[in-house]
Amino acid sequence: MSLLTVNNLKVHYPIRGGILRRKIDVVRAVDGITMELERGETYGLVGESGSGKSTSGRAIIGLESPTAGEVTFEGQKLNQLKRQDRREYYKDIQMVFQDPYSSLNPKKRVNDIIAEPIRNFEKRTKDDERRRIQELLELVGLSPESMHKYPHEFSGGQKQRLGVARALALQPKLIIADEPVSALDVSVQAQVLNFMKEIQRELDLTYIFISHDLGVVRHMCNRIGIMYNGRFVEEGSAEDVYDNPQHIYTKRLVAAIPDIDPANRKHQTDFRREVKKEYDNKKAEFFDEHGGVFDLKQVSSTHYAALP
């Protein structure tokens, strides 16, 4: 049984207009995505700004209410549950946010920040709670004494570790990480990525890794979904997507990844120009008459693409 199944998930926002602010149209932020996650894997959700990747993550964890579709976690359909029971399931799914600076309350001490989810969900004695917080801090590589500090006393990478510690407080099974390293310098980024891999192995975690950085995604993920306009244009293993992209949009996205080897510069520029030409010429073939994305079709056993 897969850990998480997302079936035809949609999140639409009304656009209101006119003097009475009546609903005149909808923004299809997420427009029917379907995915399946096995325990222990890292699934990369990739796309440019406005592609709906963050909204998808937020809808899975229940921060946005889906317009349609269902999210099944460990065999249980989450949107059919009563509020109280749903809470129990959401203990198992946690989120790590992009900006470690603004996602931690600056006025609270570290122990209160990490204890918050524990206090919400579990009844523990003061001593027990403190022990758990120290455990968590050690797990993310911070000293237990840091529980009495405030967020501003930590560096960017350490703050992101705090964000992870908070997410781990309830021993979740699935962590949704929304651009967790985008605000960090390269060396700090390496630190956080390594650490996320380590705890994944240690705690048998499953990740949904949302990012616009295709280099980071390739490094972290087993499977990748490329989103465009709220839909998947391609889904497959890292090799499928990077080495054998089928959809013209994916091709262009992959071609845009900066090449770290300056010797390839000329080749890269020519290649990009070629892909751009192909994209402009064949755009009509890869999208329907309204510019919409087609349904996914199977290309190989692991590889799907939104082809006509």
């Binding site: 390269v186 060396s187 980024q189 390496a190 630190q191 990525l193 390594n194 891999k197 295709l214 280099g215 980071v216 390739r218 490094h219 972290m220 990077y242 990844i257 770290i260």
Partner: peptide, 14 residues
């Protein structure tokens, strides 16, 4: 410390 799309290093240098 930069993750690259080519090589398959599991851990990055920190």
């Amino acid at each position: 410390s930069v993750p690259s799309t080519q090589d398959e290093k599991d851990m990055l240098h920190v």
